[in-house]
Design a protein around this nucleic acid. Structure first.
Lengths: 338, 338
DNA sequence: CTGTTAGCGCTTTCAC
DNA sequence: GTGAAAGCGCTAACAG
């Protein structure tokens, strides 16, 4: 809330003995001759003047505010993305309006509507509902990962297909012969679906027989993993697979715990590679939960910022893919000697 | 950015065949007779009208925006706090301006200044620098944990002292005889300093000899912990302590890994209790990294929101302490039978 | 170059 | 009850 008696541009003008137009020019960095500029700057300092954002916003229709709509900040990936978006926006002189929609379609739409009607200059969104129809043509918006059927909206995502291939290739490189894929997917279509395509592609390329668990995400994931394990247990207790590519670090870590609990050694008996690159305690220096195909969170964030701020909307590509990379996280063997 | 040709209150008035004043009243839920109200509402819907926040803000000096200033959202505790603050604010019709200051005093002050001069109705802050002197009298602000010497600013924090006592009591309850305390503290004074006071108090109460590692946080924490360990190793390899109260889950987890690496069993040989209640993958259902004195993050957040929105600033207590609780996280023994 | 002035869209008296 | 009109603080166009 603006302070009740905050000095206005008029007060500054009076104090400096110049016209308001001159003050405005000084504030906005336009050319003003030295003696005038000096007087204005002194007056501003003396009165502790600060421009009123509403008045300016009303006039020039710009808020330097970007809305970031995400499910939450609890999930480490979202948290990291949020952090990097905020930093990138700050860098460019923009503020971040944080909108945690929690997967609630009403809240997502409410935030989006609020954002588009006024208040913000653009939106970066990772939503679950199909927001496509709510977006005015030409409105600066960029979405992460999600794909909308009925509308072309600029998207930024990791190169999930290549990431999926990479996971298989790494497992093979580290000595696996039978890598399986496990996934508990959301019902919303997005680029991350291509991780499986990458797995399948790599299987074909390297002559492997695909074998996977592919279910809708649910609270019973844990017991489904156990079922999967039991189905792949030989009479002697050994497993018919020796490598796991998990669709997410989260479920990979869940599987890791299950395997160890069942007496299997990781990475000796089974190697695991996840996807995302989630780090313990969130720190960028911290270790991963499991070996993983890491999403370039920082680059995703700055690309989103770059695109949402792009002056020329028509120059914004409809899909931008950023490369992933493999990182060791304790559930793979060290690279074999060549 | 407000759409260039967005309908204004005038357009609605013309469409509805009433005066702008009437439209304003309808928008703001004031009394307007049915036929008029109906016409206005129809016109609003027809034109897809939405109030311009700047014009309103300029007029009534209120933005329904609260700035949340925190170091980052990478740290799981900050991430959780952010998430809950956003939710609590949304509940009350407010939006969240996310300001990650990253411990940079300039950025903290910049955000704070921006916030106070205009744009936001209040500030919730967890900062490192001494922002006390920058806060206008009566400005709605609430800080988490930090203590400022030169200024009384409403603070909300966990009851760290009781939490410290609780940690020791739990360790004793689970059979420990010699609990030590380890801490790598920030140089900024805050309520969390009282965790150590709680430890010392409990030691005195239960006739224990205090023994601790208390250093300024630094990159060498790991080797300092190893030093500490070596200093407490008997010739036969056993340790002179059997319980650890770690100032944070983070360093507790670090110590856990060190202990296991050195061949000690946790919780059989040594039990560990941390502080904060950090969960793997951020989920509220997920397991803790280590047994911990959990901060009531959600309650801290809603208390901050409640206080920052309080109409009567003089009714806001200068310090609000919220209770912590113990939760098992794998590094303590189950409660002994009585 | 500087100073004057007309609004931006809204709320809010104040007549009616 | 409703409608007309005066600004909120700022920017930008235009006149000097």
């Amino acid at each position: 809330m603006t302070k009740k008696n905050a000095p206005t541009i008029k007060d500054v003008a009076r104090e400096a003995g110049v016209a308001v137009g001159t003050v405005s020019k000084v504030i906005n960095g336009r050319n003003v001759r030295q003696p005038y500029r000096q007087k204005v700057e002194d007056a501003i300092r003396k009165l502790n003047y600060e421009v009123n954002t509403y008045a300016r916003g009303l006039k020039i229709r710009k808020s330097n505010l970007i809305a970031l709509i995400i499910p939450n900040t609890l999930n480490p990936f979202f948290a990291a993305f949020t952090d990097h978006v905020e930093a990138a926006l700050y860098e460019k002189g923009y503020k971040t309006l944080l909108c945690c929609a929690d997967g609630d379609p009403d809240k997502e739409i409410a935030y989006l509507t609020m954002a588009m009607q006024n208040k913000v200059d653009g939106v970066i969104a990772l939503t679950y509902s199909d927001i496509g129809s709510h977006i005015a043509d030409g409105f600066p918006i960029v979405v992460l990962d999600r794909f909308f059927e009925n509308r072309v909206i600029p998207r930024v995502a990791s190169d999930n297909f290549s990431g999926g291939c990479l996971a298989v290739e790494k497992l093979l490189e580290f000595g696996c012969r039978h890598p399986v894929y496990i996934r508990f997917h959301s019902v919303f279509p997005g680029e991350s679906d291509k991780r499986k395509d990458g797995y399948l592609h790599a299987c074909e390329k390297y002559g492997l027989k695909p074998d996977f668990l592919d279910e809708v995400d649910n609270p019973d994931a844990s017991s489904m993993l156990l079922d999967f394990l039991n189905r792949h247990r030989r009479p002697d207790g050994s497993l018919t697979f020796d490598g796991v590519f998990a669709h997410t670090d989260y479920h990979g870590y869940m599987f890791l715990n299950l395997l160890r609990q069942e007496g299997y050694r990781v990475p000796e008996d089974v190697q695991i590679i996840g996807f995302d690159g989630i780090r313990k305690f969130g720190g960028e220096q911290e270790s991963l939960f499991i070996s993983s195909i890491c999403q370039p969170v920082r680059q995703l964030a700055s690309k989103c910022v770059e695109l949402v701020l792009a002056e020329d909307r028509s120059s914004v590509p409809s899909l931008t893919l950023l490369p992933t990379r493999y990182e060791y996280g304790g559930t793979t063997r060290k690279q074999r000697e060549i």
